[in-house]
Design a protein around this nucleic acid. Structure first.
Length: 896
DNA sequence: CTAGGGTTAG
């Protein structure tokens, strides 16, 4: 599936990336852990080189400072040692310089010794400059306790002391404390500098919209008032806005100042990527390249997720090529994982694996990307094998992401039978409270059909995010509990509206964790479709428009499907026409919709348009599913030769290989039209390795329509050999027998069915009324209006007889007398739902009913009469298609 | 004394 909607934003490829650039100095610095000495240089046994004793402190300090400045931290520390050994007294310039070097190396031990020396020489707290660098040093390589201890002892704190303290608190993610310190700083009437703003902005962005945005806006206002236009300040403010979901404010700020640097661009690109605005991320990346701004690893790691989500393999590959041309980039571990993710999300798992294999120091995040890549592509065994390899061979301990990535593979992998064990493993690792792990667990249990466990986890969660809600909703939809899904969506929206946000902060784009997003809507819409709950569906449509989610391809396609399945083909078409971007799925959904509504010609017309647009470089070209939808449409509209022609030409003209599903459709096409022999012939010409279940059941269904006992027996025999446990096969055969009056044979089929332990799914119909979906089972007496409904159907039955209605009892399996059969027919769920609709809605209202199985012959005949007598349009959607009853006729030609 | 990047739901 391609969900790209950025064609117009990107100019034609290639991107014209510069072929090389000088590496940024930060990137060439090896990670501190490699450089970390095993023993502190201060306690080293090897004596320092003899030096000239006559050197002055000032000359030592000059050397020391210049080494620190050029990032030669090791040399700087050596110089310091030589200096002390030579007897020169370090002063309040020497200590800051050497402490900076220590910070660069994250060498706490040396730092502590220098701290002691500083105290010894009288600079412990009396020199603000030294104390400030101590705060910094502990902030970078010590603990929060040391930071506070040093800071507390400074008697005459200056602005830098506060800035360093706040920055250190941020390093330890003590966001509230950072804000507290900021307030204390203001109480002491300290001036704020851009350093202050940057740190406080970072704290704000991590405090969430509720607690951070107000202050963040004030910081921005302050920077404007004092004319602070430093690039650093603006970058930090941009990042703050983006993190708080104000991407547009971030963008406006970006556009408002001139001294933009690489970080400004990187911030914008990652902000777009993180708020699902992938096309804008790519567009900004393009602009950045065009303006000749240097790119670094962060640029690449920020833009690749956009390529990944938009499935722009072409752009992704080009970026990969750029990475290969600039060797230092692949050393950035983020780039490696982003590349793996991009390839896997574009279904190029093997390419992803090659990237993975070529990276040497594999960090856990890289393993995670590869594992989730395998899992996402259904390569569950490979995901599990890699997971084991990571633990056993690479000796890495899984983190919460690893667990969340591997769990979907466990769920789908049949060879992995004891699925609960992964839950136990996660608990053992101490991840029980982790949101990601809990989300993955909920997904696992709902796919295992254990919704109760998912519910327990969901209820027990301390913090739920959007994914938690979406996972639960998906779980309900997957297990057919559509009403629960809708209730949960409602709850989610309620949480969104009641969140404790000040009035003027209520216009945030990203919203809190409870705000439904595109995925929420696209998961819940099939629920509306299944329930034929059009009122709810419209409500969701309105919500999508209000929240700018309607232009999303997945939401749009789900809306097209929902309207069609609720019986509103016109609305379905309108949504389709208004969609700015479409993909294969969008087209397939509408073609299918036309087919279900008996508009075969329109379906073919759409197919032709699709092919024509694909020829002009349009969004989508027909795939396997397209042909299935087209054949189904032809079948329902009796367009035999059109369907057959396409079937014979699909490979040659469109490059789509016929599958067993296509055969099943074409068998249905022929069979439904009464060409049973030809249909049978087609089944027999199917390649041997093809699964014939679909084809045989199409043929059996056709034999039921055309009452062909002989061929029906052949089809049923083959079918029951392949699938002895499917109730509908038995039911069809039994119905064929009873229509032909062969009651004994029908009874025998039923007996076989019982002996095989196969149970027929109970018939069930439902109808949306006011805010609820009312459900009726066959023979249902539990509905509050049950008595009324049965009474109504009885009097209606009288009137129908006068109009010429003759009950068709062929679908009643029980061998009871005819009167009894008629009673049973009256209890059919679709009749009950229709009666409910008539009794509860004003005259003339169209009645929309949905049923889980196919409408039975008798109900079909009866509904024609009902539509005429009651002067109602009645739309019944069964498992295959729509029946539009109007003035005594039905739009379909399948029943008589 | 300061900013930007990798995972989960479809």
């Amino acid at each position: 599936m391609s969900s790209c909607n950025c064609h117009q934003l990107l100019s034609p490829l290639p991107l014209a990336l510069p072929s090389s650039h000088s590496p940024p100095s930060l990137q060439t610095q090896p990670p501190p852990s490699i450089q970390k000495p095993t023993a502190s240089p201060l306690t080293s046994k090897t004596p320092p080189k003899p030096t000239s004793p006559s050197r002055s402190t000032a000359s030592w300090v000059d050397a020391l400072r210049s080494r620190t400045r050029s990032n030669d931290f090791r040399e700087a520390i050596s110089t310091y040692i030589e200096m002390t050994v030579s007897g020169a007294r370090p002063d309040n310039f020497a200590f800051p310089a050497v402490l900076k070097a220590v910070s660069g190396l994250q060498d706490l031990k040396t730092g502590e010794q220098i701290h002691a020396a500083a105290v010894k020489f009288g600079y412990g707290s009396s020199s603000v400059t030294v104390a400030n660098t101590l705060v910094n040093m502990y902030g970078k390589c010590g603990g929060i306790g040391d930071v506070c201890k040093v800071f507390d002892r400074i008697t005459d704190r200056d602005q830098v002391s506060w800035n360093s303290f706040i920055a250190a608190l941020c390093r330890f993610e003590k966001w509230e404390q950072a804000l507290e310190a900021f307030r204390a700083m203001q109480m002491e009437n300290m001036e704020l500098s851009s350093f202050t703003l940057v740190s406080v902005a970072l704290a704000c962005s991590n405090l969430g919209v509720m607690h951070g945005l107000r202050l963040g806006k004030q910081l921005h206002g302050y920077s404007l008032r004092v004319g602070d236009q430093k690039t650093f300040t603006n970058n930090a403010l941009m990042a703050m806005y983006a993190k708080l979901g104000r991407v547009d404010d971030s963008k406006a700020l970006f556009e408002s100042f001139v001294d933009r640097d690489m970080v400004s661009w990187n911030t914008m690109i990652s902000s777009f990527s993180q708020s699902d605005r992938f096309s804008e991320a790519l567009a900004f990346f393009r602009l950045m390249v065009l303006e000749g701004v240097e790119l670094d690893g962060v640029t690449i790691a920020s833009v690749l997720p956009a390529c990944s989500h938009l499935e722009r393999l072409d752009v992704g590959k080009e970026i990969h090529a750029y990475v290969l041309r600039n060797n230092d980039l692949i050393e950035n571990s983020f780039v490696g994982s982003a590349l793996v993710d991009m390839y896997c999300n574009c279904r190029q798992v093997e390419s992803g694996r090659r990237v993975f294999d070529h990276i040497l120091g594999r960090r856990i995040e890289l393993w995670n990307a590869m594992i989730s890549g395998y899992a996402r592509n259904g390569l569950d065994e490979k995901a599990l094998i890699l997971f084991i390899e990571m633990i056993k061979v690479a000796g890495l301990l899984p983190n919460t992401t690893t667990m969340a990535s591997v769990m979907p593979a466990c769920v789908h992998c049949e060879a992995f039978s004891n699925k609960e064990s992964i839950h136990g493993y996660a608990v053992k690792l101490g991840f029980k409270e982790d949101r990601y792990v809990q989300n993955a667990l909920m997904d696992m249990y709902s796919r295992m059909g254990k919704m109760d466990i998912s519910e327990t986890i969901f209820d027990s969660m301390e913090v739920r995010d959007r994914v938690s809600w979406n996972t639960m909703i998906t779980g309900y939809v997957l297990s057919g509990r559509y009403s629960n899904a809708l209730v949960l969506l409602h709850e989610m929206q309620r949480m969104e509206n009641t969140k404790d946000v000040k009035k003027d902060d209520n216009d945030d784009e990203k919203g809190g964790p409870y705000k439904p997003n595109a995925i929420t809507l696209m998961t819940v819409l099939p629920g509306c479709a299944a329930l034929a709950a059009i009122a709810k569906g419209k409500e969701i449509h309105a919500y999508a428009i209000r929240n700018m989610l309607a232009s999303d391809i997945t939401v749009g396609s789900a809306l097209v499907d929902m309207y069609a399945k609720c019986g509103c083909l016109n609305l379905s078409r309108r949504v389709f026409n208004e969609m700015p971007n479409k993909n294969v799925i969008t087209w397939n959904v509408l073609i299918m919709a036309c087919g279900m509504h008996g508009k075969g010609e329109e379906a073919l017309e759409l197919f032709k348009n699709m092919v024509a647009e694909a020829g002009r470089g349009g969004e989508a070209k027909p795939n396997e599913v397209t042909f299935i939808t087209v054949f189904a449409a032809c079948s329902h509209s009796g367009l035999i030769s059109e369907g057959l022609n396409l079937f014979y030409r699909m490979k040659h003209d469109h490059g789509v290989e016929p599958t067993s599903d296509h055969y099943a459709c074409v068998v249905d096409l022929l069979g439904r039209a009464g060409q049973l022999e030809e249909a049978y012939e087609l089944v027999n010409t199917m390649p041997a390795e093809f699964d014939k279940v679909g084809a045989w059941s199409s043929l059996l269904g056709a034999c039921r329509i055309h009452q062909n006992v002989e061929l029906g027996e052949v089809a049923a025999k083959n079918l029951l050999h392949l699938e002895p446990n499917v109730a509908s096969h038995y039911v069809l055969l039994s119905n064929i027998y009873s229509s032909a009056g062969l009651w004994n044979k029908a009874m025998e089929v039923r007996k076989n069915m019982r002996q095989m332990g196969v149970k027929k799914e109970p018939g069930c119909s439902w109808i949306e009324f006011r805010d609820e979906v009312h459900k009726f089972m066959a023979g249902d007496v539990s509905h509050p209006q049950s008595e009324q409904l049965h009474g109504f159907l009885e009097t209606l039955s009288e009137k129908m007889r006068k109009e010429g209605y003759v009950p068709d009892t062929s679908c009643v399996l029980h061998n009871v007398d005819e009167d009894e059969k008629e009673n049973l027919l009256c209890g059919h769920s679709e009749k009950l739902a229709i009666a409910f609709g008539i009794l509860n809605t004003p005259p003339g209202t169209t009645i929309r009913v949905a049923k889980n199985l196919r409408v039975c012959n008798d109900c079909h005949a009866a509904t024609k009469f009902i539509s005429k007598i009651m002067e109602r349009e009645i739309i019944v959607r069964d498992v295959r298609r729509f029946h539009h009853f109007k003035e005594g006729t039905c739009s379909c030609g399948d029943y008589w």
